[in-house]
Every structure is written in C-alpha cells, then in structure tokens.
Computed example of a mutant assay.
Amino acid sequence: MWDERVPVHVAGEFYDLDGFRARRDVLRDFETAEVGDVTGKTLLHLQCHIGTDTLSWVHRGAARVVGLDFSAPAVEAARSLAADLGHGPERAAFVTSDVYDAARAVPETSYDIVYTGLGALCWLPDIRRWAETAASLVAPGGFLYLAEFHPLTEALDDATGSRIVRDYFRREAAVWEEPGTYADPDAPTVHNRSVEWQHTLGDVVSALAATGLRIEFLHEHDVSLFPRFENFEVQGDYHRFPADHPRIPLIYSLRASRADEAGHS
C-alpha cells in the first residue's frame, strides 16, 4: 500500500516537493520550539516516509540526519530529494528497514535526537517494542521527541467532534479497505488494505518511561494538520474547531531524555 502511494505523494500538491525545494522547511512551529537548536547535532527520524521533515532538520542546522522507513520507494524518493538539495549521504542518509529493526539498520549506534513525526504510531501494533527500540538509539545526554495526533480524536464523531462514539481503549486492530490516500483521496489505487492500532496517551508515556528515559514534558495542542472533523476551519497553517466549539487536544508532543555519562539529564 505504501509503496504504491509514494509516486502519488511525490507528484502531488499535498507534499508540494517543488515548494519544499524552495522553502526547505515544513516543520511545525511547536516542534521547532520544543526540540530547540539542533545545530551540530545528529538526528534519527524513524518512519520518515519521503524525507521532507528529515531534511527540514538539516536545513535547521543538524550536522547529520538519518531517515528510516520500511518502504523502499519512499526511501529512494527521500534520497532523490536530498540529492536535489545538495545533501550527500554523509549529511543526510536514508535506510530501508522495519522500525522495530532500526537498531540493526541505522549506521550509528546512537543519536543526539531520535525524532518521530505525526501520523507514525498508528501503524505499529506493539508500542512497547517501539519505545524500547527508539530509546536504545538515544545517545547519553540526548533525547527522544515525539509529535503525534491525539488518540482522543479517534473516539469522537467525525462530523463535529462533539460526541464520543468509539471506544478510546480499543485494542483490536482496525482494518480498512479504502482507495486513494490522505494526500489525494481521488487517486486511483489498487492496494487499499491498511491496518491501524490505537495507542492511548497512557500507553505511549508508560512505554517510554519503562525504558528509563525521563519524561521532560507532555504537551497537548488544539490544532491539527488536516481537516480531521467536518466542521474544522483553516487558521494559518493549521486546522481548528470553530471559535464557539469547546477546545480539545488534537495533537500531543513529548520529550524524553537520557542522562549523560555523569548521570545528569
């Protein structure tokens, strides 16, 4: 499914790669504020897709980034985009691997920052295994940063987001058969089966805490990147509920750090 959708994403307006080549940065303002200055640091991006977020960190000053994705066409697209922007593999490398095998696949044993961007965790059945793998790649004195869509939104009705209509604690997989893609719903596609899992906020935080990382913060944001609910309004770079709608969290972000060699977080 993902392999088939890569050409659609590369050519389409959603990712707008021509625009990205010009502006070179698609990171969200809260991400850059919460991650902070990346100048001179190494960064690993897990589940990087076609690499736009990964390469944005290069343009923000990271000394070296590595992007990892299980779709070989996505990795090839990311490498091509990096080359277009003048970045060789010594500055921006991309590897094909299942995220659970990341520790064996990436070129370095640890990174100053391990980053996972929006829309990644729902594709993983085992959040504890993900946390253990991601945490193992955080260098002493480094941190993991995660931004993700808030699981509460999946319990609400799709029209107004005002009613709870689904089980927040659902554990079974949700299987979908839908043509197209979030980047182009009308795109003709053949491989349309996808499987998703819901991970509660408690599951994610507890999984990371169990690895020994120290949770520095957990923030919740009342903005989204796409029209998740039918009554959303576009406000700047984000989608939000109308002003008269009660605010609920739509995205969350967290940072979890590893102590340095001296034992300081």
Score class of each variant (00 low, 15 high):
residue 70 F to C: 10
residue 71 S to H: 05
residue 74 A to F: 08
residue 77 A to R: 04
residue 80 S to I: 00
residue 84 D to N: 07
residue 85 L to D: 13
residue 86 G to M: 07
residue 89 P to V: 04
residue 90 E to K: 13
residue 92 A to V: 05
residue 93 A to W: 00
residue 95 V to A: 04
residue 95 V to W: 05
residue 97 S to H: 03
residue 97 S to W: 01
residue 100 Y to M: 04
residue 101 D to S: 09
residue 102 A to I: 08
residue 103 A to H: 02
residue 103 A to G: 00
residue 104 R to S: 15
residue 104 R to H: 14
residue 107 P to K: 08
residue 107 P to Q: 01
residue 108 E to N: 08
residue 109 T to P: 12
residue 111 Y to R: 09
residue 112 D to K: 05
residue 116 T to N: 10
residue 116 T to R: 09
residue 119 G to Y: 08
residue 121 L to P: 01
residue 123 W to A: 12
residue 123 W to G: 05
residue 125 P to C: 02
residue 125 P to L: 05
residue 125 P to T: 09
residue 126 D to C: 05
residue 126 D to V: 02
residue 128 R to Q: 14
residue 128 R to T: 14
residue 128 R to A: 15
residue 129 R to Q: 10
residue 130 W to N: 02
residue 135 A to W: 01
residue 135 A to G: 08
residue 136 S to M: 03
residue 138 V to C: 09
residue 138 V to A: 07
residue 140 P to G: 03
residue 142 G to M: 04
residue 142 G to K: 06
residue 143 F to N: 10
residue 144 L to C: 11
residue 144 L to S: 11
residue 145 Y to D: 06
residue 146 L to N: 03
residue 148 E to M: 03
residue 149 F to Q: 14
residue 150 H to P: 09
residue 152 L to E: 08
residue 152 L to Y: 09
residue 153 T to F: 01
residue 157 D to F: 10
residue 157 D to M: 12
residue 159 A to K: 15
residue 159 A to P: 04
residue 160 T to R: 15
residue 162 S to W: 07
residue 163 R to H: 13
residue 164 I to R: 13
residue 164 I to V: 15
residue 165 V to R: 09
residue 165 V to G: 11
residue 166 R to C: 06
residue 166 R to M: 10
residue 167 D to S: 13
residue 169 F to M: 15
residue 170 R to Q: 14
residue 170 R to K: 13
residue 170 R to W: 03
residue 171 R to K: 15
